[in-house]
């Protein structure tokens, strides 16, 4: 516990905020890695996820890919790519993007898939265009699950960006790696606590946003059970759409 108190003392001492190896620049690095990677990942995942979710095409592939991706050791992937491409911002961002896309994709397409088929059917039957169905029905209803995917992707990226310090990149992980190398346990704890706080703050903010944007009156609509209880007729419709 002494270590924790010492580490907290370090964190809350403004002396350690600015300077070459201080907290704020490393925090900034961490945020830049995270933000940049998530941005690129979103640019990739949103159109792809919307396409898969709306059309149902490539869904099996996406499910298999996202779930088997869990098994890939991200640490090994990171070191491999950095080793081949050299140290720098872009190899790291490339790895982080690769890691962020599957959970984002899963959130988007499964969010759309969870929208009741009968709701979508009726939207089409009263004369919505496919784009209107997507933008006015599927996306608003899928947003909570989409943000769930964003939360997972963000945690993934923050965690992996921490490990990136091992290959000499910046970010809050530097404190941990340096602490371990110098046998300075307090310094390692400083890094660990900072990363935890960062992850927590960002995740809680996203959770807050998630609550905020959940359309009123739909809290129960998004449960899996709701989609299972579809009239048999709709199976026929689905059949026909595929045909």
């Amino acid at each position: 516990m002494d270590f924790i108190i010492q580490a907290l003392g370090y964190i809350f001492d403004p002396v350690n905020y600015l300077g070459e190896n201080a907290i704020l620049p490393r925090l900034a690095d961490h945020l830049i890695y995270t933000g940049l990677s998530l941005f690129i990942a979103l640019v990739v995942a949103i159109p792809l996820g919307l396409f898969i979710g709306h059309t149902g095409r490539g869904k099996n592939f996406a499910v298999a890919a996202t779930s088997s991706f869990r098994a890939v050791p991200t640490f090994g992937l990171l070191l491999f790519i950095v080793l081949l491409n050299g140290l720098g911002l872009w190899p790291l961002v490339a790895v982080l993007v690769i890691l962020a896309v599957p959970p984002l994709l899963a959130g988007i397409y499964s969010g759309i898939q969870a929208v009741s088929r009968s709701t979508i059917y009726s939207a089409r039957a009263i004369g919505m265009t496919e784009f209107q169905i997507l933008s006015k029905v599927e996306v608003p209803l899928a947003i909570p699950l989409m943000l769930g995917g964003l939360r997972n992707a963000t945690l993934q990226v923050i965690a992996t960006a921490t490990i990136a310090a091992y290959v000499g990149l910046g970010g809050l992980g530097r404190f941990i790696i340096e602490g371990l190398a110098l046998h300075n346990f307090v310094l390692a704890l400083v890094g660990a606590l900072l990363v935890m706080m960062l992850a927590l703050v960002i995740d809680l903010s996203l959770a807050g946003i998630q609550k905020l944007v959940t359309p009123p009156g739909v809290a129960t609509v998004l449960t899996r059970k709701a989609t299972d209880k579809q009239p048999k007729i709709l199976a026929k419709i689905a059949q026909e759409r595929e045909g």
Partner: peptide, 28 residues
């Protein structure tokens, strides 16, 4: 799409949009 907009359609389980209010649904 144009055809469907000039034909009224009512189905079982209403098929209403769950994130829209009653008036918004009616005036979709």
């Amino acid at each position: 799409v144009a055809l469907r907009r000039r034909i009224g359609y009512v189905m079982q389980n209403s098929g209403l949009l769950p994130h829209r209010t009653v008036t918004e649904n009616i005036a979709t």
